[in-house]
Simulated assay, not measured.
Amino acid sequence: MNNKTAHTLSKVPEVTLLFWIIKIAATTLGETGGDAVTMSMNLGYLVGTIIFAVIFLIAVAAQIGVKGFHPFLYWATIIATTTVGTTLADFADRSLGIGYAGGSTLLFILLLSSLAIWYRTLGSVSVDTVNSPKAEMFYWVTIMFSQTLGTALGDWMADTAGFGYSGAAIVFSAMLALVVFLYYRTKVSRTVLFWAAFILTRPLGAVVGDFLDKPISAGGLELSRYSASLALFGFILGCLLIFKQRAASRVH
């Protein structure tokens, strides 16, 4: 087997520090952007979910349809998953009345089911293997569930658990630090640690987003959701323009 056939590129980015920085910014943007549509525009959670679900489906279809890794399209799809995750979680928790605990439990079951079916079907849930339409479908469905779960967990920790936005951010940051420690100091599965970090960055982004735009009386900074979203979008765009991202790769 020569090098050309032994080495294939996936359609997702290489997991580096830059990946996680953009991921946290994207999840925070998902929170402020989702709230801007559902709350600031007064469209409600159901309408907001429908709008972002359509954007999500279009983005995923485009991502699956292209050849190779395209950073701007990939991160646009990630942002689409996190905005629809924000509005969907809010709709389930608040409009359907199942509460943060009920919503988090349901979404956790859906996330684990998605990972289990993915593994049973393709034999791996590693992001390095995302180089076929079927793998991409599992990848984006799993991400959508993880983003939605993260929103519910963030709201649960900040509101119901009483940690507040800054306190919840510290808790999730500490949990991410534990994942980093396990990565460098143990032999725990890198795939397991990746998905743990991927899930935890979402509630971190959710509480940071709420901290930015919620009223001062509720523990936030009361910034405009529009300006916060624009600033986050500009930051992500700047990272993509300045720093080159490569596709993840694997050896067969």
Score class of each variant (00 low, 15 high):
residue 239 C to I: 09
residue 204 L to I: 07
residue 184 Y to V: 14
residue 225 R to I: 10
residue 214 K to Y: 11
residue 231 A to Y: 10
residue 212 L to N: 08
residue 187 K to H: 11
residue 238 G to F: 14
residue 187 K to W: 00
residue 212 L to F: 12
residue 241 L to A: 10
residue 219 G to M: 01
residue 218 A to Y: 03
residue 186 T to F: 04
residue 201 T to Y: 04
residue 188 V to D: 04
residue 190 R to S: 08
residue 205 G to F: 01
residue 206 A to P: 08
residue 232 L to R: 08
residue 186 T to R: 07
residue 214 K to T: 07
residue 212 L to A: 13
residue 198 F to A: 10
residue 236 I to Q: 01
residue 217 S to L: 11
residue 211 F to V: 06
residue 203 P to L: 02
residue 235 F to L: 15
residue 225 R to T: 15
residue 206 A to I: 11
residue 223 L to S: 13
residue 190 R to T: 08
residue 236 I to T: 01
residue 196 A to M: 14
residue 220 G to L: 03
residue 239 C to W: 12
residue 241 L to M: 13
residue 239 C to S: 14
residue 222 E to V: 10
residue 225 R to D: 12
residue 189 S to D: 14
residue 197 A to D: 03
residue 193 L to V: 12
residue 220 G to K: 05
residue 205 G to N: 05
residue 227 S to V: 15
residue 188 V to E: 04
residue 227 S to R: 14
residue 201 T to P: 03
residue 205 G to P: 03
residue 183 Y to E: 13
residue 239 C to E: 08
residue 223 L to V: 11
residue 233 F to E: 02
residue 203 P to W: 05
residue 218 A to S: 13
residue 224 S to H: 03
residue 192 V to S: 12
residue 201 T to Q: 06
residue 184 Y to H: 15
residue 193 L to K: 11
residue 236 I to W: 01
residue 232 L to I: 10
residue 219 G to Q: 02
residue 221 L to I: 13
residue 184 Y to A: 09
residue 183 Y to R: 14
residue 189 S to W: 04
residue 241 L to S: 07
residue 224 S to G: 01
residue 184 Y to M: 09
residue 213 D to K: 11
residue 214 K to G: 02
residue 199 I to V: 15
residue 226 Y to E: 13
residue 218 A to R: 08
residue 200 L to A: 04
residue 204 L to A: 07
residue 232 L to W: 09
residue 201 T to V: 14
residue 210 D to L: 05
residue 208 V to T: 09
residue 204 L to T: 08
residue 186 T to D: 06
residue 210 D to F: 04
residue 233 F to L: 15
residue 183 Y to A: 08
residue 199 I to W: 01
residue 209 G to C: 12
residue 236 I to L: 01
residue 201 T to R: 01
residue 193 L to M: 11
residue 186 T to Q: 06
residue 190 R to V: 03
residue 228 A to I: 07
residue 220 G to T: 08
residue 223 L to F: 15
residue 215 P to N: 04
residue 194 F to H: 10
residue 208 V to I: 15
residue 212 L to P: 07
residue 218 A to E: 14
residue 232 L to G: 09
residue 189 S to K: 07
residue 211 F to W: 15
residue 237 L to A: 14
residue 194 F to Q: 05
residue 194 F to G: 04
residue 187 K to F: 03
residue 239 C to A: 14
residue 206 A to T: 15
residue 190 R to H: 12
residue 219 G to C: 02
residue 230 L to A: 12
residue 216 I to N: 00
residue 198 F to Q: 10
residue 185 R to W: 13
residue 230 L to E: 00
residue 199 I to R: 00
residue 226 Y to R: 09
residue 186 T to L: 05
residue 228 A to E: 05
residue 187 K to N: 12
residue 229 S to D: 06
residue 226 Y to K: 09
residue 226 Y to Q: 12
residue 204 L to K: 09
residue 226 Y to P: 00
residue 205 G to S: 03
residue 196 A to V: 12
residue 228 A to C: 11
residue 193 L to P: 12
residue 189 S to T: 08
residue 183 Y to C: 00
residue 206 A to M: 11
residue 185 R to L: 13
residue 236 I to R: 00
residue 234 G to V: 09
residue 196 A to D: 04
residue 186 T to G: 07
residue 223 L to D: 06
residue 224 S to Y: 02
residue 226 Y to H: 08
